[in-house]
Amino acid sequence: MMPFWLELLISFLLIVGSVFALIGAVGLYRLPDFFMRLHGPTKATTLGVGGIILAAMIFFTYHRQEFSGHELLITFFLFITAPVSAHMMARAAMQLKVRLSARTQGRPWEE
């Protein structure tokens, strides 16, 4: 049986992770224009999945009684790729000239 403090730690990480994933989705749903919507998922989901994967790592390290590290690969991969895909989507949106919120200061570049 798993000790209580370990269970508490895993539960905490799981809840933090899913709450951040939910906040990213809420941001995607309710922010007014595309460039603002880009902020929610790129940040919140990386930390959200990061928290869940950390919980999985601790759980399987305890469960198999040896260090389980291949969950880290997913985290590394997400942390490297999230900015790249955000950058690509931002460039595509700038080229298509998506509607901007009226309060936006500054202008995007013409490509």
């Binding site: 951040f20 906040i23 809420v26 941001g27 309710r30 922010l31 007014p32 224009d33 460039f35 603002m36 902020h39 929610g40 940040k43 919140a44 930390l47 919120s101 309060r103 936006t104 200061q105 500054g106 202008r107 995007p108």
Partner: peptide, 20 residues
């Protein structure tokens, strides 16, 4: 940054000052 963005996302819309 995540905590900051979470506050902005869940807060009222008038707190947002987007810009390039």
């Amino acid at each position: 940054a995540n905590l900051h963005v979470a506050r902005l996302v869940l807060g009222p819309e008038k707190n947002l000052h987007p810009g390039f």
